[in-house]
Nucleic acid binder design. Structure first.
Lengths: 262, 262
DNA sequence: CTGTAGTACACGTATGTACGAGTTGAGGAG
DNA sequence: CTCCTCAACTCGTACATACGTGTACTACAG
């Protein structure tokens, strides 16, 4: 039987709400390591008994921790301290040509390098009219056409990222970009083969709570935000040739960028 | 009198939980713009009446929206659709020397450029032993000393970012870095004056839910994640000379980086 | 006209009860 | 020994009720 963490009693003088005091106790137990990753938090019934309060009060306290991303509730099993998945570091040279020339897409190369099993699913390729945002980034008019490549990336079967690329139809047409397997080096290699010389990428990064679809697609635990990253690829003459809209589980990633001081 | 949004009735056949259905209705009303930013969501009492359910059910539904960052509850006033603050874009050239030479710190220059009123408070300067993480990044031993400069940045009086810089004591000692006002061009200008030539910065970015202290310091609304950014400054010979640990309200920022394709 | 007390209304906190549904393990049937 | 049933335990959903506390408007007193 796993020994329960020793939780203090309530402070009857404090004007801090009871459920907050309880949340504090549990949070401290987690931070002190008294409740380690994967450990079971005492059940609602046990906590009710320990503190002598109603179930709603306990549930409010647990809700606080869950929204802080510290715990996950599993129906029928209990509440557990969240364990954090291995973190992938995205370095700012990950799209360097030297990587592309080795014949692997950035995601595959990186994941294998870190000892994980990469996979890609839900690949869908359609030709659509660009959204206003995409049209602006690609400097297209709303009546131009773009090819939309959407896919989901997984590591060891666990989804970590969804991505949607938009490429002007004029560029993508008749290339392997229209195929589910875009070939060695990925779509950037295909674009360069067509005579476009890639020069630089610009990535815009936001962070926010996931939408419902994203929660499902990435199998996110409650209380985990996502990175929303939009990358635009430019050629040497400054023409944008691709926009990639990516949503990543924030607890699976550290983004790393190098900035010149010049 | 503000017209209420027209909310559908419950689907008695659906096996979707009642509070989730209600949350869906409200979410859709917000997404359709029927409930615009700053609008008041119908009160708990009104929703109880409309749907004919208990208050707990309504509160659960509202809790869902709040945790998605879509609404904020204000005690005694009501529940409101969250309005998003003006967004600051952090470009990857923000520490370029040409900006520094104009005599302003990055934050001040940027904010004034965007028409906001920048301010800085809670400046504290102490000399401490580095944490293991900081020591590793600065390639110091744990018994070396570092100068710790912490401060909080505000725009129009609204806190948006907290930052803590760590500089090896050997470098900072006897310079204006030890003063609350670090002088024209900020601490990077002081470091260069001491003969160190800054070459590049590396920024590591994570996103997560705020800790309690951060929630207070940044006056964050519930359901808003933070960026946690750690920047390390390197000289031309590859020596790290500063680590800056920054926490930013994620809904006030878009981070933007340029990556070479070479 | 002004200030204030009162009041209606809003969300916050807490109690108690009931039943549903998923998980787990013990114990009995085969 | 194996399989299955069932009980016990867990969290999920929903009801009803009560009182606290902050807000804002109204009506009355001065």
């Amino acid at each position: 039987m796993p020994e329960s963490p020793t939780l203090p009693d309530l402070d009857p003088i404090s004007d801090r709400a009871v459920f907050r005091q309880i949340a504090d106790h549990l949070r401290e137990a987690i931070e002190r390591g008294q409740l380690a990753e994967g450990d079971k938090v005492p059940s609602e019934a046990r906590l009710m008994q320990h503190y002598g309060v109603a179930r709603m009060t306990i549930r409010n306290a647990l809700q606080v921790l869950q929204s802080e991303g510290l715990t996950v509730a599993e129906h029928g099993r209990g509440v557990f301290v969240r364990s954090h998945p291995p973190v992938r570091r995205l370095a700012s040279d990950r799209f360097a040509r030297r990587h592309r020339e080795q014949g692997k897409a950035a995601f595959i190369a990186e994941t294998e390098g870190a000892g994980g099993k990469p996979s890609v699913d839900s690949i869908e390729i359609t030709e659509v009219k660009p959204s206003p945002d995409v049209a602006e980034r690609l400097r297209l008019s709303p009546k131009d056409r773009v090819v939309r490549r959407s896919r989901r990336y997984l590591i060891n079967g666990q989804p970590v990222e969804t991505a949607i690329s938009y490429i002007p139809a004029e560029i993508a047409k008749g290339t392997q970009i229209m195929q589910p397997d875009s070939g060695p080096g990925g779509i950037y290699a295909r674009i360069e083969e067509k005579g476009y010389r890639l020069d630089r990428f610009v990535e815009d990064i936001k962070s926010r709570m996931p939408l419902r679809d994203e929660l499902r697609a990435l199998k996110l635990a409650p209380g985990v935000p996502v990175f929303h990253l939009v990358r635009t690829a430019y050629t040497t003459d400054g023409t944008p040739v691709e926009v990639c809209d990516t949503v990543m589980s924030s607890d699976a990633y550290v983004l790393s960028y190098e900035l010149p001081a010049r």
